[in-house]
């Protein structure tokens, strides 16, 4: 029997009148790397944020590691310690040094002592190649470095699952590679990862499965070679044509279709 880490069933999310997720079902197994692609406004970030309940689902069930998070009595704080989250805007604690960014939750949430917390923090800073930056403040780091600290901060909690919300979208192009390398390394180590991304090359190389979302639903999914290399659905083809060949985007856009989907 396979080990299901994340189970999403009949997930719906509305903001007022606007339905952003209209019934999403998904099972992600241990060690699987799943990339979510799709146009902006398709609900992919909302899906990710529902998995650790940063967004409260309107209806549906989320089960992570056997714990039903959508159960009103679930200990959401305890569950979140096992779900790492990496944000598009990094969200490092700007008033704390890099080292303290990595130790603060270990100490206050997991109750680790200072020595253990710092040991774990340093180990994870090494893992993302920033061992020499522990005394820097976030503002002294480049975007790429900040994002790697963000990843190390999540890893310091020893999560079972990692969620990435467009982790490279806010970075200058030349800094994207370092962050993707760290993520690739994590995938190789067997981390279960759910990644919302626009990096098609990364999805193609690293993902076990790619989900294409549009209009709040999963339109197409499968192995990256199939979804990205040989998409079956019209909407998938249009999206990929625009993303993979941005300078010729106009020819791929159907008349009357909005650029900002």
């Amino acid at each position: 029997m396979s080990d299901v880490k994340i189970e999403i069933s009949e997930l719906r999310k509305s903001f007022g009148e606007l339905e952003v997720l209209s019934g999403v079902d998904q099972r992600i197994e241990a060690g699987e790397v799943v990339c979510v692609i799709g146009p902006s406004g398709s609900g992919k970030s909302t899906l990710l944020r529902c998995v650790n309940l940063l967004e409260q689902p309107t209806s549906g069930r989320i089960v992570v590691d056997g714990v039903e998070l959508t159960d009103p009595d679930a200990d959401i704080d305890a569950a979140r310690t096992r779900i790492g989250m990496v944000f598009q805007q990094f969200n490092l604690f700007s008033h704390l040094s890099v080292l303290r960014n990595l130790t603060v939750a270990q100490r206050k949430v997991l109750g680790r002592d200072r020595a253990k917390a710092e040991e774990t923090a340093r180990e994870n800073l090494r893992r993302v190649g920033l061992a020499d930056k522990e005394n820097a403040t976030p503002a002294q780091l480049s975007g790429g470095q900040q994002q790697r600290v963000g990843i190390a901060r999540s890893l310091s909690m020893d999560p079972d699952v990692m969620l990435f919300d467009e982790p490279t979208s806010a970075l200058d192009p030349e800094l994207v590679g370092d962050v993707l390398d760290v993520m690739r390394g994590l995938a190789n180590e067997g981390m279960t990862m759910l990644v919302v991304t626009h990096e098609m090359q990364f999805a193609r190389e690293v993902a076990d499965r790619v989900l294409f979302m549009d209009g709040g639903a999963i339109v197409e999914q499968g192995r990256p070679a199939d979804v990205i290399g040989n998409p079956q659905r019209e909407r998938t083809r249009n999206f990929l044509a625009r993303v993979l060949n941005p300078t010729h985007a106009a020819s791929a856009v159907e008349p009357g279709e909005s650029q900002d989907g």
């Binding site: 650790n52 940063l54 979140r80 310690t81 944000f87 805007q89 604690f93 008033h95 949430v109 963000g150």
Partner: peptide, 26 residues
């Protein structure tokens, strides 16, 4: 920024803990 609170909550901090540790100092 709201992202600061979200990051703290994502690390398992309760709302109160996140307010005291992250939001109020900033």
């Amino acid at each position: 920024p709201n992202g600061q609170l979200e990051a703290a909550r994502s690390l398992g901090m309760s709302h109160g803990r996140a307010t005291v540790t992250v939001v109020i100092p900033q």
